[in-house]
């Protein structure tokens, strides 16, 4: 079985605006030579703090940004260096759920048009208005929203409901790969579990490949089979989730795991000193 996503020596530099007239600013190295593969049907987590390059990497894999060097293959196709109009294959195979449930939905569009957007954008022969409408209603039901939701605007929904709309949009073109960029970090605790369950259910039932980006270790631990820990543009540790969490090898992974507050440790009497590694 071939890999769903292959990332090979991917580098992404950004140019910073000039601070001096005389010499150009040094480039920001957001991603510095990252390689990994995600197998078909695998749930792969990318964990890191802000500035680790995890979101940049997600955008590169989603063909929303171009790498400075290196190659990315999606379902066997090289997506690097292609023009927007030649990316139709990626757009139909791979969809993205973004972090901000308000910002990722156009406030001026009705939910119906939001969910149908990938269908309209990728309209081939056989895509009729009726077929799209049927698909929209089917998706609304699948994500647990009433039919009336189709006529509403995004601002009429709560954060969790908006994220369901995002998920429905992502599933509309029947992709094989789902990229999720911090999909639950802006949600209330009581709603987070619902949305996480929804994502894992779909991934399982539709046999999707999942690339899940998060700063929250416990969420990735629950959701993913394998995990890559990123720091400053590099993958510092990669392995099966259970192994990385139970027996972290890299000092940064150890630090990250220790720093995350845990209910268990707290109830065992672990205070804040334990988070920063004091007392040991």
């Amino acid at each position: 079985m071939s890999a769903s996503i292959v990332v090979q020596d991917v580098v992404r530099h950004y140019r910073r605006p000039r601070a001096s007239l005389l010499r150009p600013s040094p480039p920001v190295e957001a991603v510095k030579g990252v390689s990994f593969e995600v197998a078909r049907g695998e749930r792969f987590g990318l964990v890191g703090e802000s500035g680790s390059g995890k979101s940049t990497l997600l955008r590169l894999i989603g063909a929303l940004d171009r790498p400075t060097s290196g190659q990315i293959f999606v379902e066997g196709m090289d997506i690097t260096g292609r023009r927007e109009r030649d990316l139709g294959f990626v757009r139909s195979q791979l969809q993205v759920v973004f972090q901000d449930p308000m910002g990722s939905l156009d406030p001026r569009m009705r939910v119906r048009d939001i969910i149908a957007e990938p269908l309209v954008a990728q309209a081939g022969e056989g895509s009729t208005r009726d077929a799209r409408e049927a698909r929209v209603l089917e998706l609304l039901e699948a994500v647990g929203l009433p039919r009336e939701a189709a006529d509403r605007f995004p601002h009429q929904f709560s954060g969790g409901q908006r994220q369901r709309i995002s998920i429905a949009r992502a599933l509309a073109p029947r992709p094989t790969i789902l990229l999720a960029d911090e999909p639950v970090s802006a949600l209330d605790v009581s709603v987070r579990a619902q949305v996480l369950n929804l994502i894992t259910e779909f991934v399982e039932e539709l046999g999707l490949t999942l690339l899940f980006v998060s700063h929250d270790l416990s969420v990735v631990r629950h959701t993913c089979d394998r995990v890559a820990v990123m720091r400053a543009g590099e993958v510092v540790e990669l392995g099966p989730t259970a192994q990385v969490y139970d027996d972290p090898q890299h000092p940064y992974t150890q630090q990250l795991l220790r720093a995350a507050p845990s209910m268990r440790r707290a109830l065992r009497g672990g205070g804040t000193a334990e988070l920063v590694g004091g007392g040991s």
Partner: peptide, 25 residues
């Protein structure tokens, strides 16, 4: 009780559904 269940990612079996509070705030 619901809040604790919904946020207990450590206790839940990986990949299995989490307990949830229905509806939204």
């Amino acid at each position: 009780e619901g809040l604790l269940g919904a946020s207990d990612l450590e206790g839940a079996r990986p990949g299995k559904p989490l307990t949830t509070i229905p509806g939204t705030v």
